[in-house]
Computed example of a mutant assay.
Amino acid sequence: MSVAVVVGNPKPASRTLSAAVGLATALRPDTEPAVIDLVEFGPGLLSWGDPAVAEAARTVADAELVVFASPTFKATYTGLLKLFLEQFDGGTGLAGVLAVPLMLGAGPAHALAPDLLLKPVLVELGATTALPGLYLSDRTFAEDGVLDAYAERWRPVAQALSDTVTHSK
């Protein structure tokens, strides 16, 4: 099984990246995720045809499980992540991908953002988004146990869905 994480934080090596890799690893401990830290693409995300961006998009489209992660920025996901998602065709670009929306924020005010804001665009691109989105405190996620509890609850579902989605590719 192939697993990837897509991180839309404008800071390199961010807490968002750490949380996304942690979630992907917790959901699929048998697989090392491919890491796509969008900040590394810089202006390549602003035009069509950048080879590195195209390769990253292929990696994501070919993956069976992808964690899409963003800090909460102006009550939603970042423009950096939006620019990357524009690389995929509507309805089919992420077909066959089990997508998990993950967002981090400073407080609980935007706890529904992964499901209300990020999940619909992933669905529009054809991803399967049967797992609930996960919202983590950007300051306490490493020790508060929320990520581990989520993974414990949803790991068997992710495995079953990945097997089903894989057969549909």
Rank of each mutant, 00 (worst) to 15 (best):
M1G: 12
S2D: 14
S2V: 10
A4W: 01
V7T: 06
V7Q: 02
V7I: 08
V7N: 05
G8Y: 07
G8S: 05
N9F: 04
N9Q: 02
P10G: 03
S18I: 10
A19L: 06
V21S: 00
V21C: 01
G22C: 06
L23F: 14
A26M: 02
L27A: 08
R28C: 13
D30N: 09
D30A: 13
D30F: 01
T31S: 12
P33I: 01
P33N: 05
V35Q: 04
I36V: 09
D37A: 10
V39W: 05
V39G: 05
E40G: 01
F41N: 00
F41V: 00
G42M: 04
W48L: 07
D50I: 05
D50T: 04
P51N: 05
A52Y: 13
A52T: 15
A56R: 04
A56L: 06
A61Q: 09
A61R: 08
A63T: 01
L65G: 09
V67F: 05
F68Q: 11
F68V: 14
P71G: 03
T72W: 02
A75V: 05
Y77C: 10
Y77H: 11
G79V: 07
G79K: 03
L80F: 00
K82N: 07
F84A: 01
F84G: 03
L85Q: 10
L85D: 14
E86G: 10
G90L: 15
G90T: 15
T92V: 14
T92H: 01
T92C: 00
A95C: 07
A95S: 14
A95D: 11
G96L: 06
G96F: 00
A99N: 07
A99T: 06
V100G: 04
P101N: 09
P101S: 09
L102S: 12
L102A: 14
M103T: 15
G107C: 12
G107S: 15
A109K: 13
A111V: 13
A111F: 13
L112G: 12
A113M: 14
A113Y: 03
L118M: 09
L118W: 12
K119F: 01
L122V: 13
L122N: 11
L122E: 12
E124W: 15
E124R: 13
T128I: 11
T128W: 12
A130Y: 15
A130W: 15
P132A: 03
S137Q: 08
D138A: 09
F141E: 06
F141H: 09
V146S: 07
L147M: 08
D148K: 13
A151R: 04
A151K: 03
R155Y: 07
P156E: 00
Q159F: 10
A160G: 11
L161A: 03
L161H: 00
D163Q: 11
V165S: 02
H167Q: 08
S168K: 04
